[in-house]
Amino acid sequence: MKVRLSKDSMNVIITGVGGQGNVLASRVLAGMLVNAGYYVTIGETFGMSQRGGSVMSHVRISQKAIRSPQMPLGSADIIIALEPVEALRVLIKYGNPDVAVLSNSRVVYPIGVITGELNYPSLTEIQNVLQKTTAKNWLLDATEDAVKLGNPVLSNIIMIGALSATDLLPIDRRSFEKEIAKNMTADKLRINMLAFDAGAKLI
């Protein structure tokens, strides 16, 4: 399934908090697109940054060539956030008037907010920012569905399912299944498919 991208390259950022399954989400997405015949470049960091910090994977999809693993500022086409304030953090650096944002609405509080030194914006405030600064946006409670499926970390797959339903990228249920079936037991595959489907339903 190779379709022409709406532009070359398509720049996707997957962001969240360390431990939310950011890396897996970017690998699965990239794997699906490589299978479909695109050049995909992922830029990410792990190690220390995964300890409760903000994490971000750049996924760049091209029909022509490998791209820089760090995309230029202001050049994201799609932002997928596993945590709402992380959506904003990425948006203010990589956003542009044409960007689409899919964000999980479940909050993970930074330690500075917990101690009381910092403030966390309300969901309404976050929604206002998204309305004013994106071409399209979705704020979804992926974590709630993930908890229903028995494991909050599935919210990353739910977000990928939601992404597939937006038609922003050439990915679908079948390409997802093909990619994850490579390294998963039948049990895990089943629950991940459920998560993907739950995500697709949120759009």
């Binding site: 409760g52 910090g53 903000s54 948006l91 203010i92 330690i111 500075g112 910092l118 966390y120």
Partner: peptide, 21 residues
């Protein structure tokens, strides 16, 4: 105008310091 909106949004974002899990 867009950059201005982003700057306004920046003020809302709390820093996320690394910490023990």
């Amino acid at each position: 105008a867009y950059t201005k909106e982003l700057q306004k949004a920046a003020a809302l974002i709390p820093a996320r310091e690394l910490t023990f899990c």
